[in-house]
Computed example of a mutant assay.
Amino acid sequence: MATLDIIDLGPPHAPNERAIQAFIKVEHEIKAAILASRHDWDKHEPKMWSLASQTSDHDLVNFTIHEDLVVVRVAETSYGPMIFGKIRIRAIQLDSNGDLVPGEPVKDAHGKIQVETKHGKIDDDRYGFIFVRIHDPPGEGVENVKFHSLFTDEGKNKEGENNDFYRAIQPNSKPLEFFNE
């Protein structure tokens, strides 16, 4: 199993076409895992998905890889690359403190969630993100790509004990780092 000690996680960068295709291959699994995680955590620790407490399941997973996978990092392993991705969740709008902005997301006539722009570019500092890890085994295509996990942040103090911090949806300011959940 790969750990941070034995891999070299490359720098964050915009996804190339191979990464986009790999994430598209497992997009349905990512969306299913988000909803399953949300429902599971809501049973025993609702703080984990509290940023989505006013968001419907449909709106929570109303993203596309082409438009909303904004950053990736790759770690080469002997069994193929691990790809970590940062996916924009358009329904989760944050204020400058990283808190949910009350209200429903604005949708167009087709039900697609609209995004706020700054100088014609999406202002990612206004949105929440889900961090995803996938595995792309060796081979030519993406047919063997596997969804691995979602990052859920359970804050720990210096002694390794939980400090009552839980967050599955991250602000853009949180760097995409190695995780092994």
Rank of each mutant, 00 (worst) to 15 (best):
F131R: 02
E159A: 14
D5S: 06
E29W: 13
D40W: 10
F84M: 01
L35P: 03
Q21Y: 04
W41Q: 09
D99E: 15
P12T: 09
S50R: 05
K118A: 10
T3S: 14
G80S: 08
K112I: 11
E17C: 04
H13T: 07
A32M: 10
A14E: 03
G80P: 06
P15H: 03
K121N: 14
N163P: 07
S37F: 06
F165S: 08
P102Y: 05
H28R: 12
V70C: 12
I89R: 05
P12Y: 02
N163Q: 10
S37I: 07
H66Y: 12
Q21T: 01
Q54T: 09
K112F: 11
N62Y: 03
G155V: 03
R18A: 15
K25C: 03
K118D: 14
A36H: 12
H148D: 12
G128R: 02
S53G: 11
W41R: 07
Y127V: 08
E143W: 09
I24N: 10
F178I: 05
P105W: 07
R126A: 04
P137Q: 08
D136K: 05
D153W: 12
S96G: 10
P11H: 01
F131C: 08
K25W: 00
R167S: 15
H28M: 11
G85D: 02
I24F: 07
H39G: 08
I65T: 00
P105M: 08
P138S: 02
S50P: 01
L4I: 12
I122L: 04
L94A: 03
R38Q: 10
R18L: 11
S78K: 14
D59N: 03
A32Q: 15
S149M: 07
T77S: 06
Y166W: 15
I24Q: 15
G10Y: 01
E27A: 11
T117R: 14
P137N: 09
A91L: 06
D8W: 06
P12C: 08
P137R: 09
K156T: 12
R38F: 06
G111E: 03
E17H: 08
F151Q: 11
G155D: 03
Q114F: 06
E161N: 14
I122G: 02
D153M: 11
E143I: 10
L69I: 07
I30T: 10
S56H: 00
D153S: 12
M1W: 11
E154P: 00
S149K: 06
L94M: 01
K31E: 12
R73F: 04
D136H: 09
N62M: 09
E67A: 13
N62L: 12
T152V: 10
G141I: 01
V115K: 08
D5V: 06
P12D: 07
R18P: 06
R38H: 07
Q170T: 08
F84W: 04
I113N: 05
P102A: 01
D164S: 13
A19P: 03
K86L: 02
A22Y: 08
Q93F: 00
A14I: 00
R88C: 13
D42K: 00
Y127F: 14
N62V: 07
D40A: 15
H110P: 06
I65M: 04
D5P: 01
R126F: 00
L35I: 15
F23M: 03
I83E: 05
G141V: 03
H58A: 13
H66V: 13
G10V: 00
F179V: 04
M48D: 00
D95I: 02
D108K: 13
P11Y: 05
G155W: 00
N172L: 10
P11K: 02
